[in-house]
Computed example of a mutant assay.
Amino acid sequence: MTRFEAATTRERRKLFADAVVAHRNRGSAFLTVEADYDPDVDGEDAPAPWIQFADRTFNMDVTDDELEKLKGMLSSYPEFRIDQLESPETAEGTNVRITARSDANRLAAFTDDAFQTVYGRDEDYRAWVVAV
């Protein structure tokens, strides 16, 4: 992998798929993708959204509203399923673990869709692969 960011649907999905392949080939612990911070969507105190993937599992933090959007989005991905929801009392929101047994392109599509559907990013949002 030589590039780490993209801002169109086609470029992002190619970047995410390449990151999944690199992650698998390297046997790395996980890969992490972040969307650019958007104060209109994220608010002033919230961090930019991120999604991790490791060992056939997505990991993401969501608010209650985002969790409902994620559950709705999963109907388009019947091969994926929520395995774990964890809501520590000291945190605002829920950590979600989703089993996702699929090819790199399908995983990339899910990641891109999640940033748009769950985290409210526009079609031209910029995403970064920050760890592979």
Rank of each mutant, 00 (worst) to 15 (best):
I98W: 10
F110H: 01
Y77T: 00
R126W: 01
W50H: 13
P47L: 07
M73I: 00
W128H: 15
V118H: 05
M60T: 14
V132N: 10
K14E: 14
T90Q: 14
S28K: 06
V21S: 08
N25Q: 11
A22H: 09
T117E: 07
V62W: 00
T117H: 06
F4H: 12
I98N: 09
V96E: 13
K71C: 04
D65A: 14
L15W: 04
L74Y: 04
Q52I: 03
R126Q: 11
P39W: 10
E79L: 11
I82D: 06
L85W: 04
L85T: 11
S87Y: 00
P47E: 10
A7G: 05
A131M: 09
A109V: 01
M1P: 11
R81G: 12
A54M: 13
V118G: 04
D122I: 02
Q52V: 03
D103S: 07
Q116H: 03
R26K: 12
G120S: 07
D61Y: 10
D18S: 11
E11I: 12
A91Y: 14
R81P: 08
Y77I: 01
F110A: 01
A114L: 00
P49G: 00
T99S: 15
E86G: 08
M60V: 13
R56V: 13
A48L: 02
E34C: 10
R3W: 08
F80R: 02
T63H: 05
A17N: 00
P39T: 09
I82P: 05
G27D: 02
N95E: 14
Y37M: 07
E92H: 12
L31F: 10
V118L: 03
V96W: 09
P78T: 01
V41C: 05
A54W: 12
E89C: 07
T111F: 04
T2D: 13
R12V: 02
R56F: 15
E11A: 15
G120R: 02
D61F: 12
F115V: 06
G120A: 04
E44T: 13
G27H: 02
K69Q: 15
L15M: 07
Y37D: 08
A19C: 06
A22G: 07
D45A: 15
D103T: 09
Y119I: 03
A7S: 13
A22S: 13
G72S: 12
A19M: 06
G43T: 03
L67G: 11
